[in-house]
Write a protein that binds this DNA or RNA. Structure first.
Length: 473
RNA sequence: GGCGGCGUAGCCAAGUGGCUAAGGCGGAGGUCUGCAAAACCUCUAUUCAUCGGUUCGACUCCGAUCGCCGCCUCCA
């Protein structure tokens, strides 16, 4: 079945047809490394990690590239504020970036090109644009001339005249059109610079993405993704630069995720509602953040709050509990299992349903409901006092299905956070054995006291007919 | 002012021109249990912001109104 994705360029869902059959070339706008990234930034990193892995799961060979913008106004500002050079700032926060995405369970991209490592290519592209008459040089600055590029505005649905009338920007009088944007900025006192045909300077924002994406993925590639705020001007400008230079279509499918708000407000430092991902990760495991985003549609805005994350965590624990209950049940099945699994039809239907949801513009929220249905099916079996072979096989099948989907969801590793040391386990076992003996002798006040104290330590006890089981909360 | 999006139960959140409007969280009652916990069962939207229109039929399509938000300036 075909995979459909919503393309910002056409504003509709389209079947995903790769340029090269079986292969997807995908680019995600990565971080500008001037600070720790915040929880709003984490959303695209997480969801596109999931999409990319899902496409692999569906049999595509995916080449996934994410850039590191390591030279830019904000980095320069930070370096001035902190009295260190720009390269040091960039290094510090790009190291932090890699640490954080690793903690988020994000698989490394195939390539992480850096702007500063592609200066010759950037200069070459600008020269090409100048040669073609799409860019002009003023006092060592180079600007892209939007009025000379026919399709300017095709991604964001804006046209040059509308933009002009709505423009609130200070107009640089050297620009031919107020919307013209800088490709190359001439150096200012104390700033890092590179030599160029127009004198010393540095690349403008936007140009590095055009250069690095085309360098790594070709002049036309399949998917370009990022936050909705990048549609204009960043991605619009990338199209202008790239298509202006090559005369070819730059990107087939543009994907944009919705924003993350705090209490319905955009997150910003001035409002004081700014949370870095590393702060959040000290309070919640990555898997909780992943399922939090999974249970919402990627194009919708989401609110972020303690309460909502807690809801997601409780939902995740439901899945984890069932999986570990399945494990306990399967451990008990000493015999060879034979025959047909129970509920085969219903499990297969849920599995197909999950994939159908994912295929429909990555509807993770719809897909997750199928996981919960699988969990429910498992729980229904687990409630029985005795399991048949068919029951065991069904449990096995349900678990395998969820584990398989977890190859891109990345949420089951949550149970690692509940893990205990061997010593802890041994001690808990001793206490439970004592408690079982107390219960056998009907000394319930003492057995309950052991239970209460263990719960206080975060160890939950469930008395089953055969023997008690426990888990760390 | 221009462009775009959203408004579904206490909360979060999918979805569809007509079968019972997914799923999660929370809550209530019950089963199980020595008591619990976990799990299970039942209940928790006659209704999808409001008002009109199109239609045999709309929550889903169209229009208006109200409310919220984003982009148009750095931003995921």
């Amino acid at each position: 079945m075909a995979i459909k994705i919503f393309n910002t360029l056409t504003k509709q869902k389209e079947e995903l047809i790769p340029i090269e059959p079986g292969k997807i070339r995908m680019y995600l706008c990565g971080p500008t490394v001037y600070d720790f990234f915040h929880i709003g930034n984490a959303r695209p990193f997480i969801i596109y990690d999931i999409f990319r892995r899902y496409l692999s799961y569906r049999g595509f060979e995916v080449k996934f590239v994410m850039n590191i913008t390591d030279i830019d106004d904000k980095i320069i500002k930070k370096s001035a504020d902190e009295q260190v050079d720009a390269a040091t700032v960039a290094q510090k926060y790009s190291d932090a970036f890699f640490e954080d995405i690793k903690k988020l369970g994000i698989q490394p991209a195939d390539k992480y090109p850096r702007a500063t490592e592609n200066i010759p290519e950037i200069i070459a592209l600008i020269e090409k644009l100048v040669d073609k008459g799409l860019a002009y040089v003023v006092d060592g600055d180079v600007f892209f001339s939007v009025s000379d590029f026919q399709n300017y505005g095709k991604l964001s649905g804006k046209n040059i005249d509308q933009l002009k009338s709505g423009a609130r920007i200070e107009v640089d009088s050297r620009k031919k059109n107020p919307l013209d944007f800088a490709l190359w900025k001439t150096v200012k006192e104390g700033e890092p610079y590179w030599d160029s045909p127009w004198g010393r300077g540095r690349p403008g924002w936007h140009i590095e993405c055009s250069v690095m994406s085309m360098k790594c993925l070709g002049e036309t590639f399949d998917i370009h993704a990022g936050g909705a705020d990048l549609i204009f001007p960043h991605h619009e400008n990338e199209i202008a630069q790239s298509e202006g230079a090559t005369g070819k279509q730059f990107v087939r499918y543009w994907l944009h995720n919705g924003f993350l708000n705090i209490e319905g407000e955009k997150m910003s430092k001035s409002l004081g509602n700014f949370f870095t991902t590393r702060e959040i990760l000290t309070q919640y495991p990555a898997e909780v953040l992943r399922i939090f985003f999974l249970m919402k549609h990627y194009r919708s805005p989401v609110n972020f709050s303690e309460e909502l994350v807690q809801q997601a965590q409780n939902a995740l624990e439901r899945i984890i509990t069932t999986i570990s209950n399945i494990d306990v049940a399967l451990d008990q099945s000493q015999r060879e299992l034979s025959g047909e699994a129970a509920l085969t039809e219903s499990i297969d239907a849920l599995r197909d349903g999950f994939i159908a949801e994912m295929d429909d513009d990555f509807n993770t929220a719809g897909a997750m409901s199928k996981i919960f249905d699988l969990v429910k099916e498992a729980n229904l079996i687990l409630t029985k006092t005795q399991y048949s072979d068919a029951d065991y096989l069904a449990l096995q099948k349900i678990k395998e299905t969820i584990v398989e989907f977890d190859s891109f969801l990345g949420i089951l590793s949550y149970k690692q956070h509940q893990q205990t040391t061997i010593t802890e386990e041994a001690l808990i076992e001793i206490l439970l054995n004592v408690r079982s003996e107390l219960r056998r002798r009907k000394i319930f006040d003492l057995s309950d006291e052991i239970r209460e104290k263990l719960i206080a330590l975060g160890v939950e006890i469930h008395d089953r007919p055969d023997k008690p089981i426990w888990r760390k909360k």
